[in-house]
């Protein structure tokens, strides 16, 4: 369902303009300087401690330093963060021993069915957000299948039975936990963390209460320099991989954030992209406060 009408439109115009004689040049664009805003990125998963990263927005132009050091230096420290799960209120503290804006608590873990309200006080501003952990939906079965005529590459598949209540939203992650036996990274674990592919979120508007097969490509980090993110293995899982699927149920505002984020990232650099703003659930700032009802499955690709 990744075939968006917007994309269709780009294809149309793009092809039309390729066939004509266009030209492109660098220009300088001057936009009035915008003030800085606080960006919240925080999650709470079933059985896990909540955490929140606070950072600042960056100016739009020129060169942006994306090294880990620089990004950590851009985080916001000294915030007062409280989390209310409906029965108790707890404080999220800055991680001990570091001077970065990453906050957590070990006194609270994500529970299915609960609603979590976050309040952040920082630099004289108050930011608020609410998320929930909905009931998880467990995949019926999972497998790996060779794609078309390819010989050892394929996608991860699953059979999903959607509950008959409308409004279920899902997000899909995968991680290959086996190690490279070939290539530059030989001996290293294939994926160090769960990766959500482009098109990782979907809702049951199209298939409420139906039972059907879904599949997903293998995701990669933006601008990944890894060998198998560049060559013919790109987007595929390979025979022999051990794939852990993390299939999550999420609430609607959490879904809206990722859906709009993926649209914007998908449009990136597309000259015909109309503005694709991201829908945030943070009142007074940008970003996401999201709950995940997680389920896990493992596939051995063979």
């Amino acid at each position: 369902m990744q075939f968006h009408i917007t994309q269709i439109r780009y294809i149309l115009i793009l092809i039309a303009s390729i066939s004509l004689i266009g030209c492109e040049k660098n220009v300088t664009v001057e936009i009035p300087k915008a003030d800085e805003q606080i960006v919240v990125e925080g999650y709470i998963e079933t059985g896990q401690y909540p955490f929140v990263i606070l950072s600042k927005t960056l100016p739009f132009f020129g060169s942006i330093n994306t090294s880990t050091t620089s990004l950590l230096a851009n985080t916001v420290t000294g915030a007062l963060i409280t989390l209310n799960d409906g029965t108790t209120i707890d404080t999220l503290n800055q991680l001990a021993g570091i001077d970065y804006g990453i906050y957590s608590t070990v006194r609270m873990r994500g529970e299915v069915g609960k609603t979590y309200s976050l309040t952040i006080s920082v630099n004289g501003k108050t930011l608020k957000a609410v998320t929930s952990i909905p009931n998880p939906v467990v995949l019926d079965s999972v497998w790996w299948k060779v794609d078309g005529q390819r010989d050892s590459l394929g996608f991860a598949w699953a059979h999903l039975t959607d509950p008959d209540t409308l409004g279920n939203c899902y997000r899909w992650f995968a991680q290959r936990i086996n190690h490279y036996t070939y290539g530059d990274d030989i001996g290293k674990i294939k994926d160090s963390t769960f990766i959500a592919p482009q098109g990782s979120v979907f809702e049951d508007k199209f298939f409420n209460a139906r039972s059907f097969d879904i599949n997903a490509i293998r995701g990669q980090f933006l601008n990944s320099q890894k060998e198998d993110d560049q060559n013919e293995e790109r987007i595929f899982f390979k025979r022999g991989d051990t794939i852990v699927l993390k299939f999550c149920s999420i609430d609607r505002s959490h879904f809206e954030f990722w859906r709009t984020e993926e649209t914007q990232v998908g449009n990136n650099g597309n000259p015909f992209g109309s503005p694709a703003p991201i829908t945030s659930n943070i009142e007074g700032g940008l970003g996401i406060w999201g709950g995940y009802a997680t389920t896990f499955d493992t596939i051995i690709a063979r």
């Binding site: 936009i31 915008a34 800085e36 805003q37 960006v39 990125e41 990263i53 950072s55 600042k56 927005t57 960056l58 100016p59 739009f60 942006i64 994306t66 990004l71 851009n74 990766i195 959500a196 980090f221 933006l222 601008n223 984020e261 990232v265 940008l286 970003g287």
Partner: peptide
């Protein structure tokens, strides 16, 4: 008007 970086690198 502004940019921000998410933990997934986007």
């Amino acid at each position: 008007q502004r940019l921000y970086v998410l933990s997934n690198g986007n």
